[in-house]
Design a protein around this nucleic acid. Structure first.
Length: 292
DNA sequence: AGTTGTCAAGCTAGT
DNA sequence: ACTAGCTTGACAACT
């Protein structure tokens, strides 16, 4: 099991998700920002290797405005050497990589322009993983999307639109069930029609489920991952106390985490700690895991 | 130097 | 009808 955290490291003073305002866009600004981001990404990865955190989510902001029409700069060619070097580092240390485009990526949208913008954004994410020369186990996770008042149609639209995606995207795309709309079972139904792997989220499952136990759910999700996809990816957070259902905790709850480990003992998966204090909780989680 | 409104993009649920 | 929340974090204009 590999343990990791998403996008941001709070220990080292370096971020790989610097951006700027669209109004200030220029090629020089883009090159400057991306150079900084790639340098910091390397430092973060080196930190992770030192601490044996071998699962990492790369920020979608690595290349600001990459999928926006304003960007006509051939950044993949320009930064190819840097990406290759980073890819080497990742592969040598055997780090698992994921990316998570934000809520604007909806391949089941009703408006064609939202779908086409979403595809551009997915293309951008896939390009990063391709430039790193990572195999098909490096994934891009999205949710099923909106329900638009008709869940069944929304799921069907996902299936139809998914089938039209390029293999560059399809080979990396996975779906994650969410905490109020599309359950694990909904995602499994989509998997049955598309073969898309299903990423498992412990907190979402606690919020919305069909009475499977955690262990049963992890096994079901695992089966959607083929050998080339790598082992199941999971997201983990615990419920914040006295907050809205689904709200992430600000620091690791060691008791809850140990409970999850007990429930899933003997199963193989990678786990991403979606917790506010990032690498601190990931390091803590690794300690608990090593005592198991 | 510190504070704070705002940022490319969308949907849902609660008010 | 409006807006907080979603991985919210970071930019940039203003004190």
């Amino acid at each position: 099991m590999k343990i990791g955290y998403p996008c941001i490291n709070q220990t080292i003073n370096c971020t790989a998700n610097s951006t700027f305002r669209l109004a200030n866009y220029s090629q020089a600004r883009l090159i400057d920002t991306v150079t900084k981001n790639l340098t910091c990404l390397q430092k973060i990865l080196e930190f992770n290797i030192q601490h044996n955190l071998l699962f990492f989510r790369i920020s979608s902001d690595l290349i600001p405005f990459a999928s926006h029409e304003i960007c006509d700069f051939d950044w993949p060619t320009y930064f190819k050497p840097q990406f290759q070097a980073l890819g080497q580092l990742i592969k040598q240390a055997n780090i698992r990589i994921s990316m998570h485009p934000d809520q604007f990526v909806l391949i089941n949208a009703l408006k064609p322009e939202i779908i086409s913008r979403s595809i551009s954004e997915l293309e951008y994410h896939a390009t990063i993983l391709d430039l790193l020369e990572l195999d098909q186990s490096a994934k891009i996770q999205i949710h099923v999307g909106g329900a638009y008042g008709d869940k069944i149609s929304a799921m069907q639209r996902f299936v139809t639109n998914y089938q039209q995606l390029s293999s560059k995207i399809k080979s990396r795309l996975v779906i994650e069930h969410d905490d109020r709309l599309f359950s694990l079972q909904d995602c499994l139904a989509i998997h049955a029609q598309t073969n898309i792997p299903v990423l498992f989220d412990f907190l979402h499952h606690a919020c919305l489920n069909n009475q499977e136990t955690v262990r049963e759910a992890v096994i079901l999700a695992s089966k959607t991952w083929q050998k080339a996809d790598g082992v199941l990816m999971t997201d983990y957070s615990s419920q914040a106390l006295n907050a809205r259902l689904g709200k992430h905790n600000s620091t690791l709850d060691p008791i809850d985490f140990a409970k999850i480990l007990t429930a899933t003992q003997g199963l193989d998966f990678d786990i991403m700690l979606e917790i506010k204090d990032k690498e601190r909780s990931a390091i803590e989680a690794l300690k608990i895991y090593n005592q198991f």
